[in-house]
Design a protein around this nucleic acid. Sequence first.
DNA 1: TATACCGGGCTCTGCCATCCCG
DNA 2: CGGGATGGCAGAGCCCGGTATA
Length: 375
Amino acid sequence: MALRGLSATSLLLHGMKCSWSLKFLTVATSSPESPKQKAKVVYASSTKENTTLVNYLQHLGVDVEMVRRRQPGVLKRMITHEQRVVQFLQDKGASRETVASIISRYPRAVTRTNEHLQKKWEIWQSILKTDSEIIEIVERSPESFFRSSDNTNLEENIKFLSSLGLLPKDLCRLLSKAPRTFSNRSELNMQMVDFLKDVCLSLGGDSPEEFVMKVLTKNVFLLIRSTKRVKANIEFLQAFLGLKDKELLVLLHGYGADVLDLSTEYIKRNCGSAKQKLQSLGCTENDVIRFLISYPPVLYLSSKNFIDKIDCLLKAGIDIKQILEKPRVMDTSVGTITSRIMELEKIGYNFQETGIGILHLSAKRFEAKLNKLST
DNA sequence: TATACCGGGCTCTGCCATCCCG
DNA sequence: CGGGATGGCAGAGCCCGGTATA
């Protein structure tokens, strides 16, 4: 209902997705990244593996079985650039084992030319500065680095994200934490941004650009989620929490943004089980909703974790009302809560009288506090 | 000056489906 | 029809400390 205007637009966006991709694919393929030699010459007789390549990879320590499972086609190519790729990565500081692991997990890496890699590295360097930072990411997620052969698109993305007002430090965080953002087609990122602006406007916000900045810096994973998912999450939260448009906007400006990237089923499940658990403890529906609105990140907790944590707190004689008032105790792990409760019981700490704030202090502050209390 | 409040730092890949192209 | 490029999905929190505030 509240997202009325938005649904039309985003439907349109989804519909346009195909024609967009089509259009840009044509542009992309004409880029120098996909050389003419990609014709038949590149492949062997369609069933036979390139034994030179296989031997080389085996010798390097690549898990060839894994390669066969993941991208069997790569092994059949006659023209690949494995030696140059390996050399390139080693020059950048990757160990032999690391390189082998990278190729095992994303075999298509060996199809990239030296020029391509050189260029891509330069572009990444414009954001990340040091080789070791880049290698770290490539090692963690080879696919993000190697999946696209389109460096022009990569540059488009950087240009686009900067144009939104994201600062170099934001881009750095984005590239480190969600590298896939940069191998997305830039149209896909634009689509998400348009969608978020629509959300802002349809909820009565007046500065969509600022909203987008806020939300994207708060949740760096949004750009690698589908608009479909984010839209479903927003709609679900509004309905479940019974929020007016303005209230929803406020929520999304704050902690609400944190949970938008979760899978919709997960959010629904967690909302449902949190509600059930709290109501079973005598909370009203209103209590539940106020609790979730005051600190949406509790929805990150799996329902088991949520329940365990509540039970753990209750067992120590803490009242459920105290938890509702201090939702951020839910930030503290069950392990930390348990050990702190044990320490506090030893010195006769009374949660009813002195409150539960002590449970979500930083370790340093907790120790200091504990020392003071026991003297 | 001891809490409360709050923002921010870590962190997130690896697989499968679908598309288009030669 | 096989392969490359791309989109999308499931998976599932905790901690620190600056600063306002009482």
